[in-house]
């Protein structure tokens, strides 16, 4: 009787121990984001306390002289991301519609597993592909004819054409964001109730009209969220951009100019920065900017996706 009792206790104790330890781990993972944020904030304190925030919006980056303007890098990040989105949004959404509405089940299955595969390729492989494939094409085939024809517009002039450029980074990023935009858009499109399509088709619309006027209108917030998630991926991407952007600290004015995104700045300077606390602080500010922008967009997009899917 006694042994039975102690076994009973042991089982309960086991359960309690597991519960307590998993609660601890849950709390730890709950606060991880806040912890990361706090650490970056603490590290950037030496500079934030000393200088007004507007100081970071200047273009002068000279850590040895105590000038920490991040505007050049922010402009580069925005420029490359914008190009990536412009290239990738139309084909991605068309593909998502095709897979969700028009394709045969077999095509759908193959295409989706291919796109999953695309999502799993490491970013450094995209970067390598950018260096051996995109950069030479931009340098030899794309930049000369375009700058010759449209060179009088500053955005298209190729002053120092090395191929490592805004447009090359934009192209590589465009491919990298494809899987997330396609798969999330696909998902929200399939969540649109089937009756909606039937109602439209019963009124004599073609299949495309039903998609255009009913399905897409219903799925629009979700598709917008998919685009935002893609934007976040491009915005925070480091390695691929580091390899093809050229990394010249000068604000790019043309799509053929080299650029220097925030992520690449952090990756290139982490070694040297450790000797100067202010340098560490400046890069932490860069990290904070990246994190805040990406997080705000990400949370909003996720909430939209969950709402659209939940209905």
């Amino acid at each position: 009787m006694k042994s039975k009792c102690s076994r009973e206790n042991k089982r309960k104790l086991e359960n309690k121990l597991f519960k307590a330890s998993s609660l601890t781990l849950t709390l730890i993972s709950f606060f991880t984001v806040i912890m990361i944020f706090t650490i970056l904030l603490v590290q950037s304190k030496p500079l934030i306390m000393k200088k007004p925030l507007s100081e970071f919006l200047t273009v002068e980056w000279a850590p040895h002289l105590g000038k920490y303007g991040l505007a050049t890098f922010m402009a580069s990040t925005l420029f490359t991301t914008a190009i990536a989105m412009a290239i990738s949004i139309p084909p991605c959404i068309l593909t998502a519609i095709y897979l969700a509405e028009f394709s045969t089940p077999k095509v759908k299955e193959y295409a989706k597993s291919m796109i999953d595969l695309l999502a799993g390729i490491p970013s450094v492989v995209y970067g390598l592909w950018g260096v051996i494939f995109i950069v030479p094409i931009v340098r030899d085939r794309v930049a000369p004819p375009i700058s010759e024809a449209l060179g009088f517009i500053p955005v298209f002039s190729a002053q120092n054409n090395s191929g490592y450029s805004v447009i090359a980074s934009g192209m590589v990023l465009a491919i990298m964001v494809t899987p997330i935009i396609v798969s999330v858009s696909y998902e929200v499109i399939t969540y649109v109730p089937f009756e909606y399509r039937e109602a439209s088709l019963a009124l004599g619309s073609t299949k495309w009209e039903a998609v255009k006027k009913v399905v897409l209108r219903e799925a629009a917030p979700g598709i917008a969220a998919a685009v935002v998630l893609g934007f976040c991926r491009a915005f925070g991407e480091t390695m691929a951009v580091l390899m093809v952007a050229g990394c010249v600290a000068k604000t790019p004015t043309s799509i053929f100019d080299p650029c220097y995104p925030l992520t690449a700045l952090i990756a290139n300077n982490y070694g040297e920065m450790l000797s100067i606390p202010e340098w560490v602080a400046a890069l932490s500010v860069a990290g904070l900017i990246l994190m805040l922008i990406v997080l705000v967009f990400n949370v909003v997009a996720r909430i939209v996706v969950i709402r659209t899917a939940g209905e």
Binding site: T32, V33, I36, T263, M291, V294, L295, N298
Partner: peptide
Amino acid sequence: TLMGVPSIVFGM
């Protein structure tokens, strides 16, 4: 949110 944090920030 943690999933959205850019990998370079994890690195920092």
